[in-house]
């Protein structure tokens, strides 16, 4: 079959190229690694500092600690009103709801904007983009009044429900761009086969959009995990506090900040996001490239 020949041919060519350019590849790796170290320096410093006693963090600014104090982790975990995993669980609930909400609601809206023609499309699209252009600080008070009258303050609803209503319009736009990049022949042929819009959306577009969905999930996770302002305002009950709120409890700009425990818990707080990123990025490689076109 033609494809097999072609694949073999390409594979041979690739191998040939690789053999020729080994020094170049090493050079690329060297470049990538040193660049990575520069990128990572501040983070490495934070990691190193999380093992130093608070008193010496600013006296010995070097990377290598002279005395190890793993106690920061124990102390930080237990210093607050609740053990730290309590806040991680709260954050996880908010984040999980947000990810599911964004994936469903934004992809549906994106399908409509990318593939369907309907009355008012351009206007709605403009409104959608416009809705993310106002800084949060002027809409937070009206939002607070709204959620307060629904009796939603100190629940996770104000943080999650809007995601199920596709309020994060960035992700609609992101998925619109991805879907518009997909060849239209795909849904045309499905339509000829008698598929309705929902089936096309669910069976054809969504699977092909895996990279876009993974991107949306990753970003929703990170942005929600790090989001401070709305969580600060909507969650005043300390038992409902999320990770960013908990981290602030170590800070006292006028007095003594518990830097050691703060850095230790900041490192811990990076764990789930990084883990999710690692898991999610595997889906960045799947997509049309491997599923192929019928």
């Amino acid at each position: 079959m033609a494809t097999t020949d072609l694949t073999a041919q390409i594979a041979a060519r690739r191998k040939e190229r690789q053999r020729r350019s080994r020094p170049r590849r090493i050079l690329i790796h060297l470049g990538l690694i040193s660049f990575g170290l520069v990128m990572l320096y501040p983070l490495l410093w934070m990691l190193a500092s999380s093992f130093k006693p608070t008193e010496v963090i600013f006296r010995e600014p070097g990377l290598l600690p002279s005395a190890l104090a793993p106690g920061n982790y124990v102390e930080g975990w237990n210093a607050l009103r609740n053990p730290f995993h309590h806040y991680i669980i709260n954050s996880t609930i908010v984040v999980a709801g947000s990810v599911v909400g964004n994936l469903l609601a934004c992809s549906m809206a994106a399908y409509a904007f990318a593939r369907l023609t309907f009355f008012g499309k351009r206007t709605f699209f403009a409104i959608m983009l416009g809705s993310i252009m106002l800084p949060i600080h002027v809409v937070i008070v009206p939002q607070y009044i709204l959620f307060s009258s629904l009796d939603w303050i100190n629940t996770f609803y104000p943080l999650i429900v809007p995601k199920f209503l596709a309020v994060d319009a960035f992700f609609i736009f992101l998925m619109v761009q991805f879907i518009r990049g997909l060849p239209r022949e795909l849904d045309d042929s499905a339509r000829i086969d008698g598929c309705g819009h929902f089936r096309i959306y669910w069976k054809i577009i969504m699977p092909l959009c895996t990279p876009a969905l993974a991107t949306t999930a990753i970003f929703t996770f990170i942005w929600t995990w790090n989001d401070f302002f709305s969580q600060l305002v909507f969650l005043t009950d300390p038992d409902m506090a999320t990770v960013p709120l908990a981290l602030r409890q170590f800070v006292d700009s006028q007095g003594q900040t518990s830097w050691g425990p703060l850095f230790a818990m900041s490192v811990i707080a990076l764990g789930p996001v990084f883990g999710f990123f690692l898991a999610g990025q595997r889906y960045l490689v799947r997509g049309i490239a491997t599923t192929g076109i019928k």
């Binding site: 609601a105 809206a109 409509a112 369907l116 309907f118 709605f124 596709a166």
Partner: peptide, 8 residues
């Protein structure tokens, strides 16, 4: 389209 956009 309006159905897909309903949540939004």
């Amino acid at each position: 389209a309006y159905l897909f956009l309903a949540p939004w």
